[in-house]
Amino acid sequence: MTGQEWARFLARRVAAAIAVVLVLSFGIFALLYLAPGSVEQTLLGTKPASPETIGAIRAQYHLDEPFLVQYLRWLGAALHLDFGTSIRSGSQVGTEISARLPLTIVLVLYGSALAVAAGLPLGVWAAVRRGLAVDRLATGASIAAVSAPPFAVGLLLLFVFAIGLGWFPVYGTGETPAQTLWHLTLPAIALGLGGMGLIVRLTRAAMVGELDQDYIVFARARGLRGRTVVGYALRNSLVPVLTAAGLIVTSTLVGTVLVEVTFALPGLGSLLVDSVTFKDVPVVQAVALLLTVLIAIINLVVDVAYAVVDPRIALGREAS
């Protein structure tokens, strides 16, 4: 693929991602108006409603202007990372998020890494040993892992490894980076298990499909040995495997909400849940927008990775 074709391809993908974020941001802003009760009431929270406070709120949020203008103001401010003030705490939403973001990012990366590191080899192994004991075991385990919600798994892990065996801490995030990693291990396992199941299933299915192809028979028929043949199949399975990897990152991003609540960790997820429960709309909007952008970026990266892996995709040409 030439540089120009690449540039055109990238531009198309980026534009699509931005369009998606814009559409969803509109919905996120509209949450303010969808919440039950009047907008002023929502924004006042527990503060007493008097003509003065309502007037102040209306001025602060420009509620007298048309809806579209309000949206654009909000979006413009968001681009400068200004999300207003939290109704619950009264502090800047941006500050609250930046205090909580690192933990969540570490947790998501840790969980995703565990999922891919364990799931990918297991999926390949199961496919190569199709129908044998390893395959049955891996398939069974992946079904369980995919179906088990992270909070239930987290609870079981806590009960067995923290309370029962005492190998891991029950609460807290630790002081040093090493300690943090130690504290986040059980949450990361709870978080990554579902993703691992997903990648085992998708990798196995893709590999089984590829290993059934004529080109594998032909490779074996001209004397290519095991490792080369598995390499052929793996290379051709990469597109579904990449899809799985993208799904894993997004699903851990969502799962972190449940896991942070289960393990009482002060991350973005628990912030979202607390704010949702309190109807702290500015914080909910900010977190939702942040997650939307993150997911759009992940999808974009996966899309571009497809094209790198399979030259036919970017050229818009299908294999015969």
Binding site: L24, A35, V257, V273, V276, T277, K279, A288, T292
Partner: peptide, 16 residues
């Protein structure tokens, strides 16, 4: 482009 559970949390939460 949006995970179902996340949207469900936000929408059901904010809408009551």
């Amino acid at each position: 482009s949006l995970p179902a559970l996340l949207v469900a949390i936000v929408v059901t939460g904010v809408l009551g």
